[in-house]
Simulated assay, not measured.
Amino acid sequence: MQAFTCICQRAALRHLSWIELPRPLTAGTEPAGHARVGYARASTKRQSLDTQLDALTAAGVTRVFAEKISTRATRRPELDAAVALCRELRASGVAVTLVVHEHKRLGRALDLATLAEQLKASEIGLQFLTGELQGSHDPAGVVFTVLAALSGMEREYIRDRTLEGHESARSRGKTIGGANVTDPDMLTMAIHLRDQQLSLRDIATRLVITTGTKKGRHPSPATVMRMLRDHDEQPPQTR
Score class of each variant (00 low, 15 high):
110 L>H: 07
117 E>P: 01
139 P>K: 12
119 L>K: 00
137 H>Q: 04
137 H>T: 09
139 P>F: 05
105 R>C: 09
137 H>I: 08
137 H>Y: 04
116 A>E: 05
141 G>W: 03
101 H>C: 13
113 A>K: 00
143 V>T: 14
105 R>E: 08
142 V>H: 12
132 E>K: 02
103 H>F: 11
123 E>R: 13
102 E>D: 15
134 Q>G: 12
140 A>W: 02
118 Q>P: 06
110 L>I: 08
103 H>T: 15
132 E>Q: 10
136 S>G: 14
130 T>I: 11
127 Q>C: 09
126 L>M: 10
101 H>I: 10
106 L>R: 02
130 T>S: 15
128 F>L: 11
107 G>H: 00
123 E>P: 02
116 A>V: 08
133 L>Y: 07
118 Q>W: 00
124 I>G: 09
117 E>Y: 01
109 A>M: 11
109 A>L: 10
113 A>M: 03
132 E>Y: 05
102 E>I: 13
127 Q>F: 00
111 D>A: 07
120 K>R: 13
99 V>R: 08
127 Q>A: 12
106 L>H: 03
102 E>V: 13
111 D>H: 03
116 A>L: 04
127 Q>D: 02
103 H>K: 13
131 G>N: 02
98 L>Q: 09
122 S>R: 00
110 L>M: 14
136 S>M: 09
108 R>N: 05
129 L>W: 01
107 G>Q: 01
135 G>E: 01
133 L>M: 14
139 P>H: 06
120 K>N: 06
143 V>L: 13
119 L>Q: 05
124 I>N: 08
120 K>Q: 10
143 V>P: 03
143 V>D: 05
128 F>T: 08
122 S>Q: 12
102 E>S: 10
101 H>F: 13
120 K>P: 04
135 G>L: 03
122 S>P: 11
132 E>S: 10
104 K>L: 11
103 H>I: 14
128 F>E: 08
139 P>N: 05
114 T>I: 08
106 L>C: 07
142 V>C: 12
113 A>P: 01
125 G>N: 05
103 H>Y: 10
112 L>C: 12
104 K>W: 06
98 L>D: 01
124 I>E: 10
126 L>D: 04
115 L>T: 03
108 R>C: 06
